[in-house]
Write a protein that binds this DNA or RNA. Structure first.
Lengths: 208, 208
DNA sequence: AACAAACTCACCCCAATGAGCGATACCACT
DNA sequence: AGTGGTATCGCTCATTGGGGTGAGTTTGTT
């Protein structure tokens, strides 16, 4: 049995071309649609191995489409196929459960490679996209822009575990007021006014 | 001028084979080393375009190697080349600034593709690795395991921005005590005892 | 119609915390 | 010898926040 693929793409010409190309290359295109409102049902009924999903479509957009498909049938691999390369759409798609992210400028040959890759448990991404994804991990390079001292970093690390001042003092074998003193300095350096803000900032900027 | 590559790999046979292969394919291997203690200086002196970096080496390991190179010369692309595929080492490398992550089972042809890809601003990763990376974004599927109500999620989203109860109440046009009430329920559902813990848990588990 | 869940608000008590003052000591650098 | 940064500790005061309890309203489900 062949590889079952479903397409969601509102540009009719492009969608039909894709379907044709895929069929020519031995894939079984079990459905192609110009909008993804019924994506969940389609996934359940046709049980595709791979879905190619555009983002910009009338009705529900492709991001919602991914979410619906992944809820309805998680084992289906969903690969985004779009012109968008802005961070916001990208990470929304990834959070929604996309298994790959290809830009439309991807040549057909690479497209087939990508389908093969996702079937083998990979996560095909256009180079620009992969770089963006990796960069989200590397914010550590900017970690010390707040000029925290080693001791302050240590305190902050306890703080972001949700520990209270009293507990932190015990863990670090320090006096209660010493920890508070460190925290005051930390808050100043991070330009925040309370522990909650500090935790939020530290975790979202991956300072520690 | 050719593409300048530096290798760090403690297996002499493998390292020499790689150097040979790369040279045969037109790359300029400006250095190959069996340990990376001097990685920073090497990067500064030879100004390589790409570094292939093993992880398990005597002395400083490759993770420290990446960090040193990225501090000394950020424009050098560092691609990990290792047998390790455990999450811990992987994400340490990515946080340290690695621009790619290839498993040693990668065939040479793919290796050349990867070097080309990283030179073009991409982030070559072996399929298994890419999947792991993407999966870190998709924790949303487990988001509702705590069974938070829509309103509670909304409150939590304000909370993790570091806002105080008073501010949250104002933003949501609610009474102070209403927000507290929601928070109490949230704390119960998340099995935490205070806002700081809730923020820590919500952000580290990407609940919202 | 009955019930559960979610949403809303209120009151009390007291612990936790941030702000704003300090202080001493150590260390590196000039 | 002085300067600045870090680390340590102390105090008061006002605000914030968490635990407990209760209760009215809406909404959806059975």
């Amino acid at each position: 049995m062949g590889i079952k693929i479903v397409l969601f793409e509102d540009n009719d010409r492009l969608r039909e071309s894709l379907a044709y190309l895929l069929k020519m290359n031995g894939y079984e295109v079990v459905g192609d649609y110009n909008q993804c409102t019924e994506a969940a049902n389609i996934a359940r009924v046709y049980e595709p191995d791979v879905v190619l999903m555009d983002i910009d479509m009338p009705g529900d957009n492709g991001i919602k489409g991914v979410r619906m498909i992944k809820e309805a049938r998680p084992q289906t691999s969903v690969v985004m196929y779009t012109v968008f390369e802005d961070d916001e759409k990208l990470f929304e798609c990834l959070c929604a459960g996309a298994n790959g992210y290809l830009l439309k400028k991807t040549p057909p040959a690479k497209l087939f490679d990508a389908i093969q890759e996702v079937l083998e448990g990979g996560a095909p991404m256009s180079p620009v996209i992969a770089r963006k994804v990796l960069n989200t991990f590397q914010v550590k390079v900017t970690s010390n822009k707040y000029n925290l001292s080693p001791r302050e970093i240590e305190v902050l690390q306890w703080l972001i575990k949700g520990y209270s001042i009293k507990i932190i003092a015990a863990e670090m074998s320090l006096a209660f007021d010493t920890v508070r003193s460190h925290l005051k300095n930390i808050y100043q350096k991070l330009h925040v006014n309370c522990g909650k803000e500090a935790i939020a900032k530290a975790l979202s900027e991956r300072i520690v």
